[in-house]
Each structure stands twice: as C-alpha cells, then as structure tokens.
Write a protein that binds this DNA or RNA. Sequence first.
DNA 1: GTCATATTAGAATAATATTCTAGAATTGTA
DNA 2: TACAATTCTAGAATATTATTCTAATATGAC
Lengths: 208, 208
Amino acid sequence: MTDASSPSATSVQAPRSSRDKLLDSAIACFDEHGLTGMTIEQIRRHANSSVGSMYHHFGNREGLIAALFLQLLDDQIARSRAEIDAATTPRQTVRALVHGYLDWVTHHPVEARFMYAARSEVATSSSAGSLKEKNKQRFGPLLAVLKTGVESGDIRSLPRETFASLLVGPSENYCRAWLSDRVSGAPVDHTDVFVEAAWRAISTSPID
Amino acid sequence: MTDASSPSATSVQAPRSSRDKLLDSAIACFDEHGLTGMTIEQIRRHANSSVGSMYHHFGNREGLIAALFLQLLDDQIARSRAEIDAATTPRQTVRALVHGYLDWVTHHPVEARFMYAARSEVATSSSAGSLKEKNKQRFGPLLAVLKTGVESGDIRSLPRETFASLLVGPSENYCRAWLSDRVSGAPVDHTDVFVEAAWRAISTSPID
DNA sequence: GTCATATTAGAATAATATTCTAGAATTGTA
DNA sequence: TACAATTCTAGAATATTATTCTAATATGAC
C-alpha cells in the first residue's frame, strides 16, 4: 500500500488520531466486505476503538462514509494539482487532468473502488453540498483555461456542461471496468489513448 | 411513469405476478429512500406482499437488488437493439449505441439512478457472472462491426478493451451528472455532442 | 381428486445501527 | 499548578432491520 492509504498525511512517527484510525479501518473493512457488507462493529474492532468514539466523530454510518469519501477526493485532487498547475497549453492541461486521474486510480485501487461504490450515496447525503463544491474546485480552473482556448479558436465551442464528461468520461468508465475485472490493462497504461480521445473531443484540429 | 417502469412487458390488463410487484415496489422505495435507505418492510408493504414471499423469490436483499438490476439492463439493451441492428455503417452503429443509451436514461431516470447506485454492489455479488455475460451480449456484436472497420482502415487500431469506454464513457458520465443535478440539460439533448465525440475517438478521419 | 411442488404468510430470531450515560483525557485560563 | 470547560472514549442498553423458520394455502401434473 502506498502512503496515500492513510487518510491524513502525518509524519512517519506521529500516532494517528482515533478519527484517522477509524477511516483507515473503514477502507480495510470495505476492501474485505464491500460497502454494504462492512459493519460498524468490524470497523470499531479493527481500529481498537469504540462505537461511542465512532458516533462522536461521524454522527452515523453515512457520515463516516461521506467523511472518507471527501478525504479521498481531496487527496485525488491534491495529487494532480501540481501537474495541472504546471501545464501551460490547453493540450498539456488536458493531459495533466487525464493522466492525474488514471494514475491515482491505478495506484489507489481500493480507495478508488470505495469512491465509485460510495459516490451515489454521498451525492444524496447531507454532505452533497461539499461534494459539489469540491467538484467545482476541481473543474473550475480547467474550464477557465478551456474558455480562453475557445476564444482563440483552438477549442470547440461546446455546451459548457458537457466538457467534464468529454474529458474524463472514458477514463472513468475504463477505471470502473478495471476495478471490476472486466478489463486487465492498468488504467495508467492507456494514458495516451485517453488523452488523445479527450483532445479529439474538444479540439478544433483533433489531428495535429 | 412510462410503461417501461413495470419490469416485465405484460399486457395492460394482465395482473402482474407477485415477483414483479415486488420489483416495482423496490424501484418506488428506492426513489423515495435511496438504495441504503429502502427496507424490506417498506417494499413488502408497498407490494402488499410478505417477507416470506420476498425471500422465496429473491433469497435475500442482495438478490432482489441484483434481479432488479439485471431486468433493467435487459430492458435497456432490448430497447436499443432495433436501432443498432438497423445500422449499416460503423458511424450509424456508433450513433445508435450512444443515442440508445442517452435516450433510455433520459426517459427512465429513476431506473437509471438505481442502476448506477446498485452496479458496484451487483458487480461483487453472486450475480456478477450474469452481469458480465450481458455486457458481452451488449458490446460483442459492436466490437465485431468495429473490427471490420479497423480492417478497412476506417476505424483506428486501439486496445480492444478501451473501445467501450471511448464510446459510452462520456455519455455515462454525463448521465450520472444529470441524475445528481450537477448539470441540467437532458442527456438525449446532447446526442450530437456525444456521438461526435465517440466518433472522433475511434475514427481514422474524425472530421468527415 | 390427490399428490407434489410452488408460493404466501407472519411470528420468531439474529444481525446491525444507533442512543445514552458515565467517566477519562485534554485544553484553556487564572 | 489548580480548576473548569470541553472534547473524547467506553460499552451497555435500545431500536431498527434483515433473515429464518414453520405452517398454511394455492397451483399444476397425473
């Protein structure tokens, strides 16, 4: 497991908080039993904690799942941020976005599986607002870059609300398939294919 | 509600079986309470049935969810089949596939939301095999058409396992966003955008 | 009609989530 | 340091929900 499986980036020696131990345990129990199969009791025992502590930190089961989901989403965004910020051209930005996504899922398969399984639940929970915010945070700067591209004639003028789907849709679909064993090649190994597809979808001159 | 929300295509007057009433009730309860929130007791009451009947037909909660999922998947496949079979060129086939998907989700939003919510659970259940089979059934003929396209030079030679993602990934991503109220335009209204993107992704001459 | 099988019913049980009260640890403040 | 306020932990008690079980009822084959 990479270090990203510990929810918060603590130093090597720092004892993780009880809250973080519970989140770590939730991922472990999810991996073993699935989202529906994992129980409060399993998580509590794995973390050497108590149900009281659990409910103190997260309110209820849904709150635990939402907290874990949002923390992983933060990690996912943070890890591709440097790459995206370093990009100067629209094409580089697209590559950074797609590669960042494929790379994160490839190296955090359990976390990614959890996120796909929990997303629709989080989207209808009381944390739905935070989710929307983070999505804006993720795609906001990108949409700005694309807007200038549209003005300069490099990027096609398309319905704004379809851009994100055109860019990451194929990657997301492939990652889900990979995590369900429907395909075997690691997502990141198809970076060129998915970057090219994203570029073709939005570029005015798809074959440079 | 369209007629497709009744799981089996019975005639107008035919009294639905107890099994079908339970499946209908499950969709209704899902719509009201979400996948995690819907309970056996709610479904049973809505269907005027009993828990015994429930467990007789489906074994357990997971079995009910899987049965409903697979039945909806059948409906989804069946409804785009005519359009796909009628297509003669690769481009027409791609359009039929993408349009069929967008159209079904647009007109069966509750069913589609259920499928997205339940998919990862079904994929790890004992019905995972049936799911894989139906997916092959769906994309098998299509991959054959594409193969001839590759041989004739019209379709790019790409890793086989990425084709499905390139074709339906953006559509699926957009449909999820629509069902979560992150975008407002009905999926089917963006048919041209997503067909064009799919074609650009796989065609050797994307701008005809 | 009668047997075998499929289906339904609902009470009883088991598994699980959640609440609640008390106590321990921690933090802020004088 | 002392002390109060607050946060955190513990785990028994409770509530909710899924599942099992036994018996009764319908359905279909012969």
